[in-house]
């Protein structure tokens, strides 16, 4: 597994902990959503950097209040055709104002990067290989977007009228 962030492969500092692995203060740890809900009070008081991993169907609003305490939210794609995590990512960015890392895990493919980035993902856990290069290529495949989303890029209509106003 490799992690791509900002167009380069980076080393992954995060431990994705099984539900019965204790959280240690000096190890940045991603716990499951279920565990987070069950052990919330202890976890938020621990000194470890924390992340939570949601699978499709988990309700992101249940962790909304704790987002400022989290450095990472991992959203899983059990199959790349399951598009629910795109909605969750947009909710995190646009409704709950989450500023930390949103990481795509699971069946993460190059041809989905651009959708993911626009939905608010900024880290991609991918199979080993020439993935970072693929990421850079995929990001350049489209140069405009018809609709605004969670990545702050302007929609085409905003570009159109910015040009019109400038002329």
């Amino acid at each position: 597994m490799a992690l791509i962030k900002n167009g380069t492969q980076v080393s992954d500092q995060w431990l994705v902990a099984a539900d019965d692995t204790p959280v240690q203060a000096d190890i940045p740890t991603i716990v499951s959503y279920k565990r987070f809900l069950a052990e919330r009070d202890t976890l938020v008081r621990s000194r470890a950097e924390l992340g939570v991993k949601l699978v499709p169907g988990d309700d992101v609003s249940a962790i909304a209040a704790d987002l400022p305490r989290l450095q990472v939210v991992a959203l899983d794609f059990p199959k790349f055709t399951d598009g629910r995590s795109y909605s969750t990512a947009r909710l995190l960015r646009q409704r709950y104002g989450f500023q930390g890392e949103i990481r795509a895990t699971g069946d993460v493919l190059r041809d989905q990067y651009l959708f993911m980035k626009r939905a608010g993902f900024d880290a991609f856990q991918v199979k080993d290989g020439a993935e970072a290069q693929g990421w850079i290529e995929a990001m350049g495949e489209l140069s405009h977007y018809y609709q605004p989303a969670a990545d702050g890029t302007n929609a085409v209509w905003a570009e159109r009228h910015a040009i019109a106003a400038a002329e």
């Binding site: 790349f80 055709t81 399951d82 598009g83 795109y86 909605s87 947009r90 989905q112 651009l114 959708f115 993911m116 980035k117 626009r118 939905a119 489209l142 977007y145 018809y146 609709q147 989303a149 969670a150 085409v156 209509w157």
Partner: peptide
């Protein structure tokens, strides 16, 4: 058409 083309959230419904 424009809004739905390459929609980042709704391409894997």
């Amino acid at each position: 058409r424009q809004w739905s083309s390459f929609h980042p959230e709704f391409s894997f419904l």
